[in-house]
Design a protein around this nucleic acid. Structure first.
Lengths: 339, 339
DNA sequence: GCTCGCCATGACAGCCTTGTCATGGCTAAG
DNA sequence: CTTAGCCATGACAAGGCTGTCATGGCGAGC
């Protein structure tokens, strides 16, 4: 509460000009070691914290990173936030969260906020990573951004992702390895770039194993529990049903399990179910879900890092981007194929 | 990208001084209607947006609201964010999210951020609503805050809550109304004020119905799926088991359902399960969970409102606070008692 | 008709920090 | 010994806005 202490106080205390204090604070060169120490001592003694508003008004950094999302999965969203914050804290940055409603007027939501609040960068989560209006607005305002798991137009801006195709490929191989030959697949939300890649991974693995991908074994979903539920009703409705179902995310897999439960199918004896994401929900079910652990935390942290340290892209070269590792998490919802 | 347009541009465009533009922007009095219109027209024409950093540096508002949380439930967290943002957007405020790790040094996490970033107010979610170090730091820095669902020390600061005791009371009555007389209860995390109130509501309802509350029918949980799972194992372990279990939140209720599933109990025919919160998970299960819908969205929105419009407390009077309505959501996980 | 007081408005000084440019001391080269 | 050039530092303006106080116009009261 006591009168805010400013850079002037520190300057006076350490007997230098405010500019020198500023240099020390910003790790600029050209400060004698001796002076630097004296200033740092004063900062510590006075418990001084630079004022963000003043910094961002005067300088080029705002110490603010934005996270845009329009994701129905709370687990995904908080994971991203936690991952980004962890990195931001270390550098004194803060996180601004901005839910965007893609069904509304996106321009109206994004443009004002970008103009009002200066941010050093924005982290885009799917499906916003591929939203043309959002990308355009960001570029128009000159705000740096990093896309998490973009679906296409990969060279447009820096991104962080994982190999969704490969992960789906390996999950499919896991099922095939358990003896499954008739596998159902539920595609994810078409606006998410990852949906396509996961689908492709499934197709590739089946093909490579010499197995047929029957059209009636593939259903379109929307990444929601309900869509998984409905897809499963179709998949499991006939007398002839697959021995395993691979859903493109956990929420849909949970929908599949709900249908299986209702049909009194024994999991995994009569039906194996696999998901994707390893959301908290994957463990909140019985049997626990076999799924793919996305490095969400790490992806968000990496994105924040890129933004804080300035995403420099060299002319002509593709933007600096990162592909992180995933992990197959085998739990109890998948088992040996019956028969 | 085009050169940032400032208040000076608007002033020039509308032929008034920047101070008058400022007056219009801030809805200050003493501006002729005619002038006001002219300024507003210029603002619209130039698509002017005031710069937040400059505003907060010069004035007393920061246009930033913080949300502190340390809540294991992602659904709860995002609900709070969404509720708060919805209100903030209308007034041009932004949301800063700050996860706090209560197991770490809280002072070290809170103090620097409060000193660096000026916020107009902070929304505290359980269990932070009752964290003494957080409250003290906020008060020391003179930052206004609103507590969501605090457990005690109710007159210390403004809060927004719902009547947890009454809700638990009504849920218990719902079960009793279905013929259940032997009901198990799982207490929530002891650090959350609501846990105690929900427990009390259960006790009161049982007592009022002339039913005994057996000690071995009450288990301590931690609001996590796992703790619900473990509590259920104890509750359902013996030959003599309750016909219904009321868990203090949905995650624990889901844990109960997992145990029931594993034991091949038929829900709700052999066991009724009730939760609390109406998180997304409540619908992501089969049968869907009977629960209490917390007005999380509204509570967060109300809290943001109080912060933006200044929580004025009159000397002597208790702080202005709000109790919002809840709703009993009866789904398929509760049914007639067997026998 | 004159003064008082209120209303609408403007001039100007901050708010706190960073960026730019100037300064003076010192080193190394000519 | 002189001077170019680098290093450490400081003075000052700028950044966009709000708060305070001053100003001029105008209607009301005497």
């Amino acid at each position: 509460m006591s009168a805010k202490i400013t850079i002037h106080d520190v300057a006076r205390e350490s007997g230098v000009s405010i500019k020198t204090v500023s240099r020390v604070l910003n790790r600029e060169p050209n400060v004698k070691a001796d002076t630097r120490d004296r200033v740092q001592a004063a900062v510590a003694a006075l418990n001084y914290r630079p004022n963000i508003s003043a910094r961002s008004l005067a300088g080029s950094k705002a110490y603010l990173i934005g996270v845009f999302f329009d994701n129905p999965s709370p687990g995904y969203v908080t994971d991203v936030q936690l991952g980004a914050i962890a990195r931001c804290r270390q550098e004194g940055f803060h996180l601004i969260v901005e839910p965007i409603d893609s069904t509304g007027d996106v321009e109206d939501q994004v443009a004002p906020m970008l103009a009002t609040l200066r941010m050093d960068g924005v982290i885009l989560t799917p499906p916003l990573s591929d939203h043309p209006v959002v990308l355009a607005a960001l570029e128009r305002e000159g705000v740096a951004y990093v896309r998490i798991a973009p679906g296409g137009d990969i060279d447009r801006a820096p991104w962080v992702s994982m190999d969704d195709r490969l992960a789906a490929y390996e999950m499919t191989r896991h099922l095939i390895g358990l003896g499954h030959t008739d596998i159902g697949f539920i595609i994810g939300h078409p606006d998410h770039g990852a949906s396509h890649q996961r689908h492709q991974g499934f197709i590739d693995a089946m093909r490579d194993a010499g197995l047929a991908v029957r059209d009636d074994r593939v259903e379109q979903g929307w990444f929601s529990f309900r869509s998984g539920f409905e897809a499963a009703e179709k998949l499991l409705g006939g007398a002839d049903r697959p021995s395993a179902i691979f859903a493109s995310n956990d929420d849909m897999a949970l929908g599949v399990m709900a249908v299986a439960n209702r049909m009194r199918l024994d999991l995994p004896a009569q039906l194996s179910v696999a998901g994707f994401d390893d959301t908290p929900g994957a463990k909140i079910t019985w049997p626990q879900l076999t799924t793919v652990r996305q490095p969400i935390h790490a992806m968000a942290g990496t994105a924040a890092d890129m933004l804080m340290h300035g995403v420099e892209r060299e002319e002509g070269a593709p933007p600096p981007s990162r592909l992180l590792d995933f992990e197959l998490v085998v739990r109890e919802s998948t088992g040996q194929a019956p028969g």
